[in-house]
Design a protein around this nucleic acid. Structure first.
Length: 417
RNA sequence: GUGGGUGUAGCUCAGUUGGCAGAGCACCAGGUUGUGGCCCUGGGAGUCGUGGGUUCAAGUCCCAUCACUCACCCCA
């Protein structure tokens, strides 16, 4: 038996119904906000991710599926979607017709991490991005959209955290201030943080080690170092969220693992998935379009962890599987042929009908009908075929009535409606 | 990449000091010649995760390995 690849998984009937429901809820909602679907490839040149996400990040350094294809080009299975969407926006000069574009996409992402609850090597994301809008309204709108999605999926027990990471003007100042602070308490930090205080000092703010956490309560907050523009932007985001009734908390220590973020960043957290608490996350990436060779154009977006979302929805979801509308139990070859003709005709008319094609006994056919949860079974034997009247059994009441074989589909429609 | 827990039938799991591979549920058939659920009887189904080792004998003990899982880390 050949096993599937570690960290990969099948999504089976019984689960896919929920996935479809979530997908439809999301895409209907996004469409109402003016988002259009974009479909991008699962592989890109490695360089695209390395440059946008950041050479020094964990994702790029040790999690990407990167390899040389048969022509020798270095390519990577996408670890996230934003870089590809921005690449596509630039490549097709989509900013030319209307610089403001709103996209969504749904699909698999790949990161080679140690698998865990809510963490797979192939996982799915629902992404939404707004390109060409610098206004903080865009930030608030995206978060409002997320808020609506979760409430339409009847999810409570989620909390939204926001922060601002500043811009290329003010972040370096903060970085210096923070490094100075970290120098002062180096001895009290964990081993990782001592290393990080040089390579990526912002990460120290996000450390989970209790000792570091405690120490970091006194650390300078990035929100205190923002330049005037960034400060105004962040304030308008908060004001707008209040206006829209979106609850949120400011998390001064939230740092995200992709280098491209500027200004607003946010995460939606759940308490029900163990350590993997982020159900969605995102933020602004105002420099990315230009960095990839496009015009100076702002951007912001989010990614929802589809697998994690499905997992917390499944906790309070009822069975979404639907059984057939009718089961046709046919006895004998002539009747089977008739039944076969009927189930095909019914499917064509949108009625889901099942039958047994293996020539099983009536008893076993009834048993299967019961298992499939149908409420009506049409019984057809030699007698019924010659008399032109089939037996229709209501499985709940056990009542059986005769129905004429002609215009059967009409009759069935009437009964199941 | 690091650490803990778990791998026995489709599913949930028993399996004693090493001594014939088990139960419940599910599935199939029959009891009922053409009628589901309840009941009864029977049946099929296993590389005991995999590979080595110890032993007359290993599901059981030892070593290795793989997978799942939880946590660290990271993120969706």
């Amino acid at each position: 038996m050949i096993q599937l690849i570690r960290g990969f998984k099948d999504i089976l009937p019984g689960e896919t119904e929920l996935w479809q429901k979530i997908e439809k809820t999301a895409t209907d909602l996004f469409a109402d906000f003016g988002f259009q679907e974009i479909r991008i490839p699962v592989m890109e040149k490695t360089e695209l991710f390395a440059r946008t996400i950041g050479e020094q990040t964990d994702i790029v350094e040790k999690e990407m599926y990167t390899f040389a294809d048969r022509g020798g080009d270095m390519i990577t299975l996408r670890p996230e979607a934003t870089a590809s969407i921005v690449r596509s926006y630039i490549q097709h000069k989509m900013y030319a017709q209307d610089p403001v574009r709103k996209f969504y996409t749904i699909g698999p992402m790949f990161r080679r991490e140690r698998p865990q609850k809510g963490r797979y090597r192939q996982f799915y994301q629902i992404n939404a991005e707004i390109l060409g809008v610098a206004s903080p309204y865009a930030d608030a709108q995206l978060m409002y959209m997320l808020h609506l999605l979760f409430s339409r999926l009847s999810l409570s027990d989620l909390s939204a955290h926001i922060n601002s990471l500043g811009c290329p003007q003010c972040r370096p100042d903060f970085r210096n201030t923070l490094m100075a602070f970290l120098d002062g308490c180096r001895e009290e930090l964990c081993e990782d943080c001592r290393r990080r205080s040089q390579s990526n000092p912002l990460r120290v703010l996000d450390c989970k080690v209790p000792k570091c956490r405690e120490k970091m309560t006194d650390a300078p907050a990035i929100t205190d170092s923002l330049c005037a523009e960034c400060r105004a932007h962040f304030e308008t985001v908060q004001k707008s969220l209040n206006l829209l009734g979106v609850p949120f908390a400011i998390d001064k220590r939230m740092v995200r693992g992709l280098d491209y973020y500027t200004r607003t960043t946010f995460e939606i957290l759940t308490g029900s998935l163990g350590a993997q608490s982020a159900v969605a996350g995102g933020g602004r990436y105002d420099g990315m379009v230009q960095m990839l060779g496009g015009p100076e154009m702002p951007g912001i977006g989010f990614a929802i962890g589809f697998d994690r979302l499905a997992e917390i929805c499944a906790m309070n979801a009822q069975n979404l599987q639907k059984g057939p509308a009718i089961y046709i139990a046919a006895i004998g070859e002539a009747c089977q042929e008739k039944a076969f003709e009927w189930i095909c005709a019914m499917a064509e008319q949108g009625i889901r009908a099942e039958m047994d094609m293996e020539g099983k006994s009536l008893k076993s056919q009834m048993k299967r009908a019961d298992r499939l949860g149908v409420s009506n079974v049409l019984i057809l034997g030699e007698d019924e075929l010659s008399s032109g009247l089939a037996l229709l059994r209501n499985m709940k009441t056990k009542e059986q009535i005769s129905v004429p074989i002609g215009n059967l589909a009409e009759k069935i429609k009437e009964i199941i409606s």
